[in-house]
Design a binder for these strands. Structure first.
Lengths: 119, 119
DNA sequence: CGACATATATCGTCAACCGACCTATGGCAA
DNA sequence: TTGCCATAGGTCGGTTGACGATATATGTCG
């Protein structure tokens, strides 16, 4: 059930406006601070899968400079899935953060000397 | 690079104290609100992998009621990885939340009528 | 003329998770 | 006493999704 990072960002990029494949690549790079760079195999495979799942759908097709642009849009179902995923990520991050804080309080965090508890 | 959910929770469960395999299963269930139930194949495969990566290490072995308990502990490297992952999850959640908010503001969110913008 | 950005797509491989299965002990209930 | 469940370890095959390489094609810029 949990989405992988590339899939998560594809849905996120389509949340505010329809985009075509290459536009998604650029949007995802921007949204992730250039951390996630979608590969062609990942993108088009995911696009087919998400369409089959009904989370995205074909918005329109355009031909610009003799090149086809196939725009996809997020469905309401897709938006619900993304909202659920977002909540899950938040919860997981909070859980791990609490555990890491407890570890740091016990002087076992990284960067501190286990013997003295000091950095 | 991004950790999958089971792996993420295994590291989280070992952050505050060493645990043995079965203890990890129970801790992860508790930490995730019973959402993540580790399968045997997932757990022992991940344990070997994480040990090879140097993110966890063997803490000690005990025999209780004739049953072996093999305890693992999080290494400082593992704690750093988990902290990085936590930050990544937070950032991704924030990014998606912002996009979903923008969508809702445009009346395209799920649960609202696209025509009227009302629920 | 070649390199690069734009644009879509397929294919083989790999890593991680899942489900099923196996062994073994101890307690509890039918 | 027999079977089931919780506890405890583990293996194995299959699926899934991402990755990297490759292919095709047009337009732009040096």
């Amino acid at each position: 059930m949990p989405l992988r990072e590339p899939t998560f960002f594809i849905l996120t990029s389509l949340t505010t406006q329809p985009l075509h494949g290459y536009g998604i690549v650029q949007a995802v790079a921007a949204l992730s601070g250039d951390r996630v760079r979608l590969q062609a195999g990942t993108l088009y495979g995911a696009l087919d899968r998400l369409k089959d799942d009904g989370w995205i759908e074909l918005d329109r097709e355009e031909v610009v400079d003799g090149r086809l642009r196939r725009y996809y849009r997020l469905t309401d179902t897709g938006a619900e899935v993304l909202a659920g995923e977002t909540a899950r990520l938040r919860a997981n991050a909070d859980t791990a953060a609490a555990a890491l804080r407890a570890r740091a309080d016990r002087g076992l965090g990284f960067g501190t000397n286990p013997a003295t508890g000091l950095a």
